Simulated scan of single mutants.
Amino acid sequence: MKGSEGENGTFVLGPGRCGSTMLSNILNLHPDILSLFEFFSTQGVRSLLPGKISGKRYWQQLSTQTRSMRVMFTAKTAPSEFLYREGMGRFPIDNLPPLLVSTLPHISDNPQKLFDELARIVPRFPDQTIEAHHDRLFRTLQERLGRKIWVERTGLSQMYVKLLPRLFPEAKFILLYRDGRDVALSMQAFKPIRPAIWNWKWSGRFGPNPIDLDNPAGRSRHLRFNDRVFAVKPLVRWMVDTPPSLEDCAGFWSELMLTSIPEFLSLAEDRRHYLEYTRLVDDPKHELDRLAYFLEVEPDKTWLDAASAIPKRLEPRWKRLDADMQAKLSDWTAEAREATGRLSSARA
């Protein structure tokens, strides 16, 4: 039977480094929207594992870091998306409960208090699938904070374009796009995404592809096993500290786009919305009005005025490269950019 998971909910899909943090901040200003920020990414390779688990075990997952995440998220390496700061609670930053990394600080001025409230509620959830647990958690937060809908936004979530519609049959989906040349450059510089690119580069020889749409990171038991057994600190630290080549970053982005776009287009039209970064920056009020209509919330003037002030027009980073590297980067991303160009042209 078709479940109700995802009712009153929407997922923002993107490859990471595409303006999605900006979008989360925009959504968080709306009084009717619960903006769930980096929820799946902080769960690591166990975020969508198949099978049923108890509420107690689910809470352990929300409150205990994986081995690799403890290496990636430290006081020295944490990116700006890491919102927890010293003094917010009793936990050390180097071993922080996943739920407190970004999600709760994004929606609460007192994330420690909200965490403690959930610690009394979540362990009582019944035995159920991980997606049912997520859905119940989202609805619990939605009700406690008085919001009408929830919107989850996670970096690299585009790899879930085939999985999430099946697990959350009532949810809607937003595909956020940005020029792959800028995305590739940003990926190369962004430490938390580097391990995914290295694993993609090594896939086949040393393990499964983390962006395999049928069995992506978060769903793959193989990748979860690798995290438990092989996520030794020196290797994870090397992947975090070592930038992949720009060609590999462009290839990673291109494969993700080319495999995911057909899946996105297979969704019913009333379940999908295409949002282009440049259009959002150039005409924020128009794009946010369209977005509010899709989400079925009121695009009131107070929100539109405040939200429209967030996007800033910046010169594309790839244009700062020398002419030879510009040409190479354009070539490496050409096929995927052409595919997204057709998607943009067909936008309603």
Rank of each mutant, 00 (worst) to 15 (best):
V161P: 06
R144A: 14
T154S: 15
F173E: 10
R144S: 15
L141A: 10
E143K: 05
L176Q: 05
Q158T: 01
K172S: 14
K172C: 11
I174T: 08
T154V: 07
S157F: 01
I149L: 10
Q142K: 15
R153E: 15
I149S: 11
E170H: 06
I174V: 14
G155S: 15
A171Y: 07
L156N: 14
R166A: 14
G146K: 00
S157V: 02
Y160G: 02
L163I: 15
R144E: 12
L164Q: 07
T154Y: 06
E170M: 09
M159F: 02
R144W: 12
M159H: 04
V151E: 07
W150L: 05
M159K: 06
L145C: 11
K148H: 07
G155H: 09
P165A: 11
I174W: 01
V151R: 04
L175C: 06
P169F: 01
G146D: 02
R166D: 15
R153N: 15
L163C: 13
G155W: 00
Y160C: 02
L176V: 05
E152C: 12
F168R: 09
K162N: 07
L175E: 02
Y160I: 00
E152T: 07
S157W: 02
F173H: 12
Q142R: 15
E143I: 02
G146S: 00
Y160F: 14
Q142T: 14
E152W: 03
T154K: 05
A171G: 14
E170N: 05
W150C: 09
S157K: 01
W150V: 06
G146V: 00
E152D: 11
L176S: 04
F173Y: 14
R166N: 13
